[in-house]
Design a protein around this nucleic acid. Structure first.
Lengths: 223, 223
DNA sequence: AAAGTATTTTAGTCTTGCCTAAATTTTTTG
DNA sequence: CAAAAAATTTAGGCAAGACTAAAATACTTT
């Protein structure tokens, strides 16, 4: 009997997926921090998920956790929902890109496959959401992301903004204000060895902006 | 400390509201049937809701249950969500009127007040959903419904279809096929004393249709 | 009005998903 | 490399919201 994938489980899988994207396996503590629950609760759930049939995660005590193929499919399903929803809300209901995240976090667990398909259709099967994050395909494959942090650019290099971290609405509003949004061309006019500050020229803007590493590590570009 | 209104509670309140609309107080059994749960479970929840502070229902053992003002507001909130969602899904994603119900049942508990407001705005503040059901106003008042069953019309009477019961998708598809949809003018060409059948002329249609009471009691008109 | 039937409530369980406190393991550091 | 610190797991609990079986109440019918 296949395990029922509850809302709570979807949230675990989604966050484990994202943690796996960066470093290898996701730690109990990191998961707990992201889900805002106690680490002890996470341990319990991980045990459950790894004993599910079929297992959704691979879990060895004290060594963090990785998704199985099944777990990954379930995670990508949720992520696809989330990112399509963000696009849809921006497009159809005039949400701004700093407002969509919370709403999508709730809706992603609830919409039907039909709803998902209709959104994709209505939006013309987009490949990125409003923050530039790649949308898993309908057959649940995650496209390869070739972007790297703006922080890695040096003086005189030019690139296109592809993606922006979406979890801080205030940062999103600020980036929008200075024109740093997906598909915009930017040129590094200066890189400071000391503090990592980058002086950036943004296409279509008169004056340059100086961005610290806190920001330049949250903005991703492709050359 | 105000009671948290969970999804489950919202469902109870919504169905109690609808049962209250017809006969006076809602019985344990009727609620159980609508929610597809055991009557014993309903009793437990009713006790909880009537002991909440503030109470959401008025409940006397063995005598069914009624909503308090607070309970009614909460119910109307959910119903407003549901009906706006139905309109929105039909309008924006091309759902047909027999497909929206299930989707709206899940979404109604999850959307924010902001989402609700944006939908209302985008739809031009509609007063009825695709089935013609009245949408509670933004300040949570239910407009007065003056419609009555098509079954109550007699030969040579003419009226406008206002509303159609939305819980049977097959019936909805059939009604759509024969053109019996909100705001359409109809005329009774014949009423049969024996079986209650009504022969109906639908504006814009060539041939008349004969409808039994099962149908004519689910279609509501105004003269 | 008594008997039988239908409805409702009580009592006791179960599962999910979270919690805290304490124990254990792993990692870091002097 | 041992001691301290950090991370993780175990153990025991709790609340929500469902269930079943049995008891109690209310309604119907003769």
């Amino acid at each position: 009997m296949t395990e029922t994938i509850t809302q709570s489980i979807q949230d675990y899988l989604k966050h484990i997926y994202e943690l796996n994207e960066n470093g290898g396996s996701a730690s109990t503590n990191d998961i707990a921090a992201r889900l805002n629950i106690a680490p002890a609760s996470v341990t319990g759930m991980l045990q459950k998920l790894s004993n599910a049939k079929p297992p959704l995660v691979i879990y060895k005590k004290h060594q963090g956790v990785t998704l199985t193929k099944n777990g990954e499919k379930a995670a990508l399903e949720v992520i696809r929902h989330h990112r399509l929803l963000e696009s849809f809300l921006v497009n159809t209901l005039g949400y701004s890109w700093d407002e969509v995240h919370l709403e999508a976090d709730k809706l992603e667990h609830v919409i039907s496959e039909d709803f998902e398909a209709r959104m994709a259709e209505a939006l013309g099967h987009p490949t990125r959401d409003p923050h530039g994050e790649l949308i898993p395909t309908a057959d649940l494959t995650m496209p390869l992301d070739k972007s790297r942090p703006l922080a890695s650019l040096r003086t005189d290099e030019t690139a296109t903004v592809k993606r922006v971290s979406d979890d801080d609405p205030a940062l999103l509003r600020h980036l929008h204000e200075i024109g740093v949004i997906p598909e915009v061309k930017v040129t590094v006019k200066n890189y400071s060895e000391f503090d990592g500050n980058i002086t950036l020229q943004v296409a279509g803007r008169k004056s340059n902006v100086v961005l610290g590493t806190v920001i330049t590590n949250q903005v991703f570009i492709e050359k």
